[in-house]
Simulated scan of single mutants.
Amino acid sequence: MRNAILLILTLSSWCASAQNLIPNGGFEDENICVEYNQNCAPEAWIANSLWANYYYYTPGKAYDGSHFVGLSAGDAYQKAAHNFIRTRLLCGLQAGHQYQLEFWVRSRHDILDSIGVYFSPGDFLFEKRDFKQLQPQLWATNTLDTLYQDPNRWQKVRLIYTAAGNEGYITIGSFNRKEYTFRGLPDFKREYYFFLDAVSLIPLDKKEQLCPQADSIKKDIYIENPRHDFLKRLVYINSRNPPAVKPLPKTVTVARVMPPPQHIDTLIIPDIFFNTASYQLSPKSYGLLDSFTNKLRTFTIDSVVIEGHTDSVGTLTYNEALSRNRANAVKGYIAGKLPPNKTTFTSRGFAFFKPVRSNRTPAGRQQNRRVEIYVYRKV
């Protein structure tokens, strides 16, 4: 049995201040549609379903934050009823340059290998061709470690894209040309979903940054408020006579003075350092935490993030409270050992929504019951 795992990770500062070309990649900013005056969609993103059947506000179930989207990959009665979601990029990409695309997915259906990413100069919503006639440049299956079907397990997709230089929009959805035979009940009405969160597109070139117009472009994108019937009419008109494609201003490559690198110290505290089924710290944890905090006294600390996790045994309400209380218990202990009012602490509980191992075995459940401490510090 392992008592603890201590990992030291070094990240360059450009990763911390990533130049994300995707607006509202976490779907946290809500769009207030003009037709019903409701927060029915994420800002910047529009799905080809044209309705509000893809936006979810479910704290604890999102990969990060409280919002995520669900996209249909099939219909119980209607074939090829796929749902796609698109957004406009904040800046144009430089031809031949490479960009890292990252997002998180989960599903209880055997469809993760059908998730594709389609870059296009014009708006996907006005595309005349059927999705089966389009060729995504990237497929999620090329990076997934497993096609594990677990509705509670988020899996990271990380892909490298070489730009053609004419990209204006990015679309994500199920592009599989062969329809699946789904089993079990649909996720929403008649439809079978996969879920998507935390989308980012970042230049691999450390000197490549957002274009100066990125903020104004983002404001223009957020102004796109038509949804439902208003959007249906807009799509009807523009799909028959697509508007001229307006190229985006390109990202810029500049010389950068690199500040001192930032380090992250990560301490994983297993379940054995807490009293059984309790958030009270066991005395055996004191030596480990004291050693950790003593080491931190020698560094300049920016912030400390503490996250609690449980296995899947028990109710969601119970596990949310247990994971949150365990994180707060560790926060209280560490805060009491560091100089007062000098460090920003953040604690949160994720219940059983971020397992590191399968909850189907006792060994897996034991590893999932943990508290993770992330200490952001300067060299």
Rank of each mutant, 00 (worst) to 15 (best):
Y118L: 10
R256N: 10
L159H: 08
N3Q: 11
T141G: 08
K284G: 03
N53L: 02
N176P: 00
E320V: 06
D150L: 13
T58I: 10
G168Y: 02
I237Q: 12
Y236S: 15
S72P: 01
F274G: 14
F345H: 07
L316G: 09
R369V: 10
I170R: 00
R183I: 13
Y55T: 07
T141R: 13
L125K: 07
I334L: 15
R158A: 13
P59N: 07
N294M: 13
P203D: 04
T10H: 12
T143R: 14
I334N: 00
S49P: 00
A277N: 14
L125H: 08
Q19M: 15
E28S: 08
P136F: 10
L267Q: 02
C211G: 15
L322R: 07
F345C: 04
P340I: 11
E35V: 13
A277P: 02
T146C: 05
P362N: 14
L50I: 07
Y57E: 12
K218N: 01
R153L: 15
A44W: 04
T361N: 00
I301R: 14
L93Y: 03
E28C: 09
Q209L: 13
A73D: 05
K342V: 02
K331P: 00
V330R: 05
F230N: 11
V371P: 00
I268H: 07
C40P: 04
R369H: 08
R158Y: 00
L9F: 04
N83Y: 01
P151H: 10
P242F: 02
T300C: 06
V34S: 14
V375S: 01
W51H: 09
F273D: 02
I22G: 01
C33Q: 06
T253Q: 06
E208D: 07
V371F: 11
R227K: 08
N341Y: 14
L248P: 00
T315I: 07
L185Q: 12
D145W: 04
L210G: 04
P261F: 03
D205F: 11
N176S: 05
C15G: 00
A198S: 15
I237V: 15
H263C: 05
N238Q: 12
Q149C: 12
I306G: 01
R357N: 11
N48L: 10
C91E: 00
R106W: 10
N142E: 15
P203E: 12
Y57C: 12
Y236H: 12
G122Y: 07
R240T: 00
N37L: 15
G96F: 08
F103S: 04
S358W: 06
V304Y: 06
R369S: 07
G25R: 01
Y118P: 02
N48E: 03
T266S: 05
T276Y: 10
A80H: 03
N341I: 08
S358N: 13
K156C: 11
Q98L: 15
F175D: 03
E224K: 12
L267D: 01
L93V: 10
N31D: 09
T10A: 12
S107N: 11
G60N: 14
L7R: 05
K250S: 13
T146E: 13
Q100H: 11
R297M: 14
A321E: 12
F274N: 02
